[in-house]
Amino acid sequence: MELIFALVIGTLTATGVYLLLRARTFPVVVGLTLLSYGVNLFLFSTGRLATGQQPVLGSAETYSDPLPQALVLTAIVIGFAMTAFVVVLSLRNLADNEDDHVDGRQPQPTEPSKREREAGSK
């Protein structure tokens, strides 16, 4: 279970980071969402993974830690609100600039430098 859990967290985080580095707002928003899923699962696992245990000390040999679950709940609620906000902001960016590039416009194609021109002519 630990291996699967770790792989899932790793995949979610890596995908999220990759998408965050894209230049369009839509992948960035999806990347943020995936990243927050990864983070939530990670937080959940900080209380150690156990199934079918009670969150009460002393009643059984092992217990499941209730605190990370409370933390995850808080993080989910906050992350949900933030995602909603960033979606609205991206839509506004699209409406204001008629472009969903994260800088509001496409980067201007730079003039090829002298060396590149020479290399091209050869």
Partner: peptide
């Protein structure tokens, strides 16, 4: 304000994710 705002929000959301990860590592 749209574009600087977008950058600010996205950066701080990433910051929050990193904050949670570090809190989790310390708590664990």
């Amino acid at each position: 304000r749209t574009v600087p705002g977008l950058h600010y929000v996205v950066l701080n959301l990433i910051g929050s994710a990193v904050f949670l990860i570090s809190v989790g590592m310390i708590y664990s």
